[in-house]
Simulated scan of single mutants.
Amino acid sequence: MLKDYLPWIIAGLVVLALVIGGLVLTRVVPEVAATRRRRPRPPRDHFRTGEDDVPAPLKRAGVVINPTKLADLPTARERITAACLANGWAEPVFYETTVEDPGHGQAAQAVRDGVDIVCTLGGDGTVRNVAGALVGTETALGILPAGTGNLLARNLDLPVALEAAVGVALTGRNRRIDVGELVIGAAPMDDAPDESGDPETHYFLVMSGVGMDAQIMAGTNENLKAKVGWPAYMLSGVKHLVSPEFRISVKVDDELEFRRRARMVVIGNCGRLLGGLVLMPNARVDDGQLDTVIASPRGVVGWVPVATRVATRQRKGHPTLDHKACKEIRVRTDRPVPVQIDGDVIGEASEVSATVRPGCLTVRVSQ
């Protein structure tokens, strides 16, 4: 008789087992899921490798110093170093100019050393030589004014105080500016003997010129300049008001060549001078062109209207002061005359040709 009920007994046991199993699962599974949900998330650093823990290297500046412009070089180095550290940069690398190399080689070495910016501590001549190594590169130029004129810094509205200038160089914004390229030396007018030698190529950031302005630079007393600053140039300018005239032949872009007598020709990348004077009111460092002034006054009295137009920033209005805006200009003279580039007299020549190189230099300026 038990055999007759055995299948039903087995079936009942199976059903009972399934019911009990279902009850257990309904309690255990939610608890397991809750336990999984409550498991704490590993900290973020748990997934990091050792390489991520290495801090990024600090930026470093290279500073090209003209030691002749500083009375206390060690103190200047200390102030620059302190300013770099205060702005979160590493200690700077210093390079000193020499008579043989006034800045170009030092700037090139700084770039090879991997600095993040190349700064100059000196005058416009130091800036020009350092910039020559940076033209066409992405390395920015920082300007720490320490000269007499500091004309590029003034035209870019940069601070003159050392700590403030360092701050701008390290934290300011990049600005692309034009550079003038000057070729010196070629055949003079009227088949006169060529005494200028082989052609030389130079860069200028502020102004270059032939004639009286170069004579003023050459005639400025260095001792007086060190004592009184830029007014020393004015004294030299008074002495050269009656400098000799010379005949010039000028070719501007694709215009016809013209001739006249002149006392000076100034080719500028920017127009602001010392003492708040503006020689070229429309000149801009990033307008893609050069501005030229041709001055041809007669005697001392002839300088009065010229000076008036410079003081009032008029661009036109008098036949003895011509303004030309161009991308390229060539000036030939009837004899060799002095030539200056950003305040440095580099000799005499009877022909100069200037061409603008738009936006080829990066300079760090104020925000």
Rank of each mutant, 00 (worst) to 15 (best):
A140S: 15
N129R: 06
E91G: 10
G299W: 07
G276K: 08
I294W: 02
V135E: 04
D254C: 10
V266H: 00
P338C: 14
G299K: 12
L6Y: 11
V242T: 14
V99L: 06
G302Q: 07
A61L: 11
N150E: 01
L13G: 10
T98K: 08
L224H: 08
Y233T: 05
M217H: 14
S236I: 09
E328K: 15
N129M: 06
V293W: 01
V300Q: 00
E91Y: 03
R260I: 05
G123E: 01
D116K: 06
I216R: 04
S249G: 14
F258S: 13
R298S: 09
L13V: 09
M280P: 01
P297A: 08
P193Y: 07
A131I: 08
F94L: 08
V331K: 02
V179A: 10
S196R: 00
H240Q: 14
V111K: 06
G62D: 10
A232R: 11
L58K: 14
D213L: 09
R48S: 10
G167W: 00
R175I: 02
L170Q: 04
V352C: 10
R263Y: 01
Y233M: 12
N223T: 15
R332P: 08
L274C: 02
C270W: 00
R128M: 07
R330E: 13
R313I: 07
T126M: 03
G172H: 01
V266A: 10
T148R: 02
V339W: 08
P67M: 13
C84Q: 03
G12P: 08
V14G: 15
L85H: 08
G21S: 15
V242K: 09
Q314E: 13
D322N: 07
H202I: 07
V266Y: 00
V28T: 15
S350D: 12
D253M: 09
G103I: 05
P159D: 02
G343P: 06
A153Q: 02
A262Q: 01
R60K: 15
A107Q: 03
L235S: 11
I80N: 05
A165H: 03
P231F: 08
V266C: 07
F204V: 08
T148S: 07
A307P: 05
D342V: 07
L73M: 04
D116Y: 07
T49N: 09
M217N: 15
V310F: 04
D190H: 00
V365N: 11
R284Y: 06
I341P: 02
D124N: 03
D342P: 09
T201G: 11
P336M: 14
R272P: 00
V352D: 04
